[in-house]
């Protein structure tokens, strides 16, 4: 009985955590390691969501020969697609794989392009530039109906429906495993000499150039690479919600929260980022569960989580500005010792 109630809750929290882990660790690679201040993280995430909104369902409609418009007859098409997907394992799986690759390509290209446009900007200016770009993309998504249904958004079919009654378990495993693979990739990259070079660029870009490295190319690569993975997070968020509404990919949920997670946990340290994400998600969940018991408070419970996390953030900034788990310089112990993973 207890397990039956608790298990979905744990899995739900864990999927939520995993998806946010991609956002915060990508931001950590951009901001914490390379020093690219990106306040517009959500442009990469929403680009993945737009891809899953616009691409696989249209492909499925075309493949099955359904003569209806996916956006304007959305609910009907989704129910038809769900019926087809229930009997057909291959098509939804293939569509999902195509979606992931397409989302990574779109995310990567957008990340590369916007970074290329902003190469001369640093710190605050760069952060504001990315914020503006991301807001512009959001406004475009909210108003261009063929992309993701405009202001109303669109529903997505269930790509896992062919798995039967336990599809939610597989789905959740999927939502948890992919983010952890991405996290492992980031960990691998940051523990290599490339990660060290990124930190050096963060500290002093001109000095790195004068040591013979093309820092522009490195920064472009980092942004393309992390934006591609952020787009994957966007696909996962949409799959989890089984819908895409452009307006939900906003600066609070997908830029400020990841920033808070990174700052709380420790900038330039993947483990700190993991801890920060975990703490934020747990605090949010606890507040969410307690909402029925806290009716006596003079504030709407919806704002309580913002107040609490804002408070936590201020406390950390005052007493431990480098975060809970600060970045540690790499230690070389003895002659012949080199980096170990």
């Amino acid at each position: 009985m207890v397990l039956e109630t608790l298990l979905p809750l744990i899995i739900e929290t864990l999927t939520f955590f995993s998806i946010y882990l991609v956002c915060s660790s990508s931001l950590n690679l951009q901001q914490g390691y390379t020093g690219i201040s990106n306040l517009g993280l959500f442009f990469s995430i929403s680009s993945g969501a737009y891809v899953i909104a616009a691409l696989p369902t249209r492909l499925a409609v075309w493949l099955y020969g359904i003569n209806m418009d996916f956006v304007y007859q959305n609910a009907l098409v989704v129910s038809l697609l769900n019926e087809r997907f229930a009997k057909d394992a291959l098509t939804p799986t293939l569509l999902l794989i195509i979606t992931f690759f397409a989302a990574m390509a779109v995310g990567g290209i957008l990340g590369y392009a916007f970074t290329y446009l902003s190469l001369r900007l640093t710190e605050t200016y760069l952060a504001v530039f990315f914020l503006c770009v991301a807001e512009a993309i959001k406004i475009f998504g909210e108003n261009f109906i063929p992309l993701a249904g405009g202001p109303n958004g669109i529903l997505l079919p269930n790509f896992f429906i062919w798995l039967g009654n336990y599809s939610w378990i597989f789905q959740s495993a999927f939502f948890i495993i992919i983010p952890f693979i991405i996290f492992a990739v980031y960990e691998k990259v940051t523990r290599s000499p490339f990660g060290r070079l990124l930190k050096a660029i963060r500290e002093n870009e001109l000095a790195v150039q004068c040591l013979g490295r093309n820092t522009v190319s490195v920064k472009l690569k980092v942004m393309a690479f992390t934006s591609a993975f952020l787009a994957v997070a966007g696909v996962l968020v949409s799959l989890r919600m089984r819908s895409v509404v452009a307006g939900t990919f906003d600066r609070v949920d997908y830029s400020f929260w990841p920033w808070l997670m990174v700052m709380l946990g420790g900038v330039g340290n993947n483990l700190g980022c993991l801890l920060g994400t975990f703490l934020c998600i747990i605090i949010r969940r606890i507040v969410y569960w307690l909402k029925f018991y806290l009716v006596f408070l003079p504030v709407d419970i919806m704002w309580l989580e913002y107040i609490l996390l804002g408070l936590a953030f201020m406390i950390v900034m005052i007493y431990k500005p480098e975060g809970i788990l600060p970045e540690k310089p790499y230690q070389v112990k003895q002659q012949g010792d080199s980096r170990s993973n």
Binding site: V189, P193, F194, R196, L197, N204, L211, G212, F225, Y330
Partner: peptide, 27 residues
């Protein structure tokens, strides 16, 4: 013009120029 939050050893390893691990794909 050194990298202030990196250790001295890390600084020197960045000064070394021929490391193939500094390419994203090789990392």
């Amino acid at each position: 013009a050194v990298f202030s939050r990196l250790s001295l050893a890390e600084n020197l390893l960045v000064f070394y120029r021929k490391n193939p691990g500094e390419k994203l794909i090789n990392s």
